[in-house]
Design a protein around this nucleic acid. Sequence first.
DNA 1: TAACAAAGTTAGACTAATCTAACAAATAAT
DNA 2: ATTATTTGTTAGATTAGTCTAACTTTGTTA
Lengths: 222, 222
Amino acid sequence: MLSITEENYLKAIYRLTIVNNNEVSTGTNEIAVYLGVKPATATDMLKKLKEKDYISYEKYGKSSLNQVGKSIAIEIIRKHRLWETFLHQVMEFSWDEVHEVAEQLEHIKSKKLIDSLDKFLNYPKYDPHGDVIPSADGEIAFRHTKTLNNELINHTCEIVGVKDNSSDFLKYIESLDLVLGKIININEIYSFDKSMNISINGINKNISEKLAENIVVSCKNC
Amino acid sequence: MLSITEENYLKAIYRLTIVNNNEVSTGTNEIAVYLGVKPATATDMLKKLKEKDYISYEKYGKSSLNQVGKSIAIEIIRKHRLWETFLHQVMEFSWDEVHEVAEQLEHIKSKKLIDSLDKFLNYPKYDPHGDVIPSADGEIAFRHTKTLNNELINHTCEIVGVKDNSSDFLKYIESLDLVLGKIININEIYSFDKSMNISINGINKNISEKLAENIVVSCKNC
DNA sequence: TAACAAAGTTAGACTAATCTAACAAATAAT
DNA sequence: ATTATTTGTTAGATTAGTCTAACTTTGTTA
């Protein structure tokens, strides 16, 4: 049985090897920064996880999950996202409040509970941030997405997620009505600063490039 | 912020000072046995909890909760019983499966979550074992109960709890239809072995004294 | 009441996870 | 290519929670 700490390291390595597109491994310092510990601490844990055969790691090299480690990481992410969905849909938590509590709930050990929760929520595919929820057998459905700043003029797309999960950002975009599931149309892209004019529920507004970079969309006509 | 271990010690002291009717304090070994640790370990933790002012404890003496410690213990018990209710009513866990997972869930830190859960479950008063769920402000409703073996002939009562929470016992009484909420009538008490004949849903059956000692009832006509 | 048993404590050690400070390797820059 | 910077490791210490083994109190009983 893995400790909560071990689980968190596996999850961190998973996130860092997925976020770094195409990268399949991650450096020790990066893991340490992600988890808020010192590099020395991460080194010790990496040695331990290698010993237990969850990861590949060589001194001064980069780390990557092996099969067992990867499936554990995916299981934890599945639990995290199901709990987030529960907190948002059933416990009336707002978009930006779910993460912190889900960080605790994801470590509860009970297969029966997580399967019941999945059923109770009617097998949701996406969590409140639009991220894909892995299935019970570890499958992660593919979805063609891009960030809003990469969309083209006159295209229509759906908001399916965000890059920045900070409470500040989530509250900000909520105030702009840029919430999950909204359909937006790109009216204009200003070459000067790459800001764009979009329609949302028939209302036009301008948004900055930086904002657009943090909104994940799924295009309807491309 | 208390650690999970500290919370478990406070809960243990609470349970042991309530179970030992009239006793307001409990010995070190008793705590150790209850928690499955060695007496030396318990001694160390008791010193620490005294230092933090959650309990009263003197060398070679008995321990008892002080005000702060008691309210924390009650809060954890509240969380435990609400989660048990959730697992049983919503997650379709059977009577005897809820405890183990609730032991984990009771340590989740989120006031908002537990209050939402309470509301979602429609402010239940009793958990699946019939134990009273403390209110958000720490009040524990009083209920006049006794064990079934102390009931008198021709009395009618409701099953409101059990003394033995083991999976074996719970499965056994479930097979006899002796589940929470059932109304039973005492037809006969045999002085020879104190076994009794009872009616439940119009069906008569004999139960042993030992069984009756572990069923908690609330009397309707006394 | 003296001795024995039960209950509880102390001392010293261990493991997991963390830290700081010093060092080593790999990478980048002049 | 030699130095400087970044990155990562080692060694030694710390804290929480646990253990064993030896010891001390308290309580019981002969």
